[in-house]
Structures are given as C-alpha cells and as structure tokens.
C-alpha cells in the first residue's frame, strides 16, 4: 500500500517579494505612490487569504534506471532521459504535489469580469507564487526528513512539462498522490484544475543507515 503523507496545511509565509517580482516589479526602479502601494497590498492580502496550501508526498524506492526509463516500486514508470539522469545515483524518489485551491483563481476571474485587469493579475500572481512557495517548503521539509534518514536529496527537482519529462506524467502524480482528495482534477490535456496546483519529483540517495542520532 502506498504511504502517502498528507499535509492539510502547508505553512507558507506571504511571498510578497516573489509576487512583486513575478509582476515585474523592480526594487531599484519601480515607482509606486502610497495609494497604489496600499491598494496593491490590500489585494495581495485578500488573494493570499483565499489560498489554502495543502499537499501530499510519497517516497517510492527506485527499482530500475536504464538511462531513459525509470521504474519505481509498485510498477510506476517514467520515460524520460532527464528524469533518468536526475535519479542516476538515487535509491528512491520523492513525489510531491501541492495546491492552493480554486478560490484565488475565482477571485482573479471576478476581477477580469469586472474589467479590472490589474487586480486580476495581482490575484493570479499571488496564487502562482503561493503554490510555488508551498512546493519550496515541501522540498525543504523533505530535505530535512531525508537527512534524518541518512539520505540526501538531489539539488534539482523536476516538474512534468519541461524537456522530455512530458506533461502526460501529471497523471502519474495525480494518481499516486491521490490528488483528487484535495479537490484537484485532471483534464484530458493533463492540466490540473484548480490551475494553481504544482507537482514535482526529487531524487534521494542513501548515505547512511542511521536515523535521528
């Protein structure tokens, strides 16, 4: 049986800097008057309040890696040279998935329908960056978790849809992490709904058998 670890709440700290960066805010050059600053901040707060970062992770032992195909315990398989390379020295991989829910995207749509593009863009950026912050947090957590199990994680993590790690692999994440339990669905074109949902895989290599101390 798969041992999926569920996180009902991921403690994301309001990623203000990342949101502004996404919106092309330049700390040295961009000029905001007090009114704009207040207005944008309040929309960011409102949108952030609607984000509910939750997620799940699962560690699967690696059974086979032939350089172009990797097979995990349970028969789960990924065909990708880049994933094979990522997991070259690994004994297992952590699959992770997070979502911030659909309320923030609904807010962005509300703004769009009201003709307020600036606010829609801000709400959308808040959702995206909160999801990114959530998966960053999960990645950091797993690094600590792995370390205590005498393992180290690969310095990179990969998400489906980049290079030869095709978007179709979203289905694998969806199934093994039971993402439907978080209110997430997957379209025929492998897009998650709510759209502020992020998945990733990271490799783990054994370095020692001790745990804790």
């Amino acid at each position: 049986m798969r041992d999926v670890h569920v996180l009902n709440t991921i403690p994301v700290v309001f990623p203000e800097r990342e949101i502004l960066f996404r919106l092309k805010f330049n700390i040295h050059k961009t000029e905001l008057d007090e009114r704009q600053r207040e207005k944008f901040k309040s929309i960011m707060m409102k949108a952030f309040a609607l984000c509910k970062p939750t997620g799940a992770w699962l560690e699967l032992p690696l059974l086979l890696n032939d350089g172009s195909r990797v097979v995990f315990e349970g028969g789960y398989e990924i065909k990708s040279h880049s994933i094979a390379e990522l997991l070259r020295n690994c004994d297992s991989a952590f699959f992770m998935g997070v979502t911030v829910g659909g309320a923030v995207s609904a807010l962005a749509n509300e703004y769009i329908n009201a003709g307020d593009g600036a606010l829609a863009l801000i709400a959308d950026a808040v959702g995206s960056e909160t999801a990114e912050a959530a998966i960053d947090w999960l990645n950091s957590y797993l690094a600590g978790y792995a370390r205590r199990k005498g393992k180290v994680l690969t310095s990179q993590r990969f998400s489906a849809g980049y290079g030869d790690f095709l978007l179709e692999n979203q289905r694998l994440f969806y199934e093994i992490l039971d993402l439907q339990n978080f209110g997430v669905s997957l379209t025929d074109t492998f897009i998650f709904v709510p759209e502020k949902t992020v998945t990733a895989i990271v490799g783990a290599a054994n370095t020692s058998s001790m745990e804790g101390k």
Binding site: L23, N26, T30, E31, L32, Q36, G117, A118, L121, I122
Partner: peptide, 18 residues
C-alpha cells in the same frame, strides 16, 4: 515608456490603460 524602463510594473501599466 515607464514600463519599458521598469519604473512601472504590470499592474500599474494595466491600471493606467484601464
């Protein structure tokens, strides 16, 4: 121009356009 020079960021550009 301000947007190109990064003196404005996206929401400002859109607000002004609105």
């Amino acid at each position: 121009d301000k947007y190109d020079r990064k003196e404005y960021f996206l929401p400002q550009l859109i607000m002004s356009a609105d």
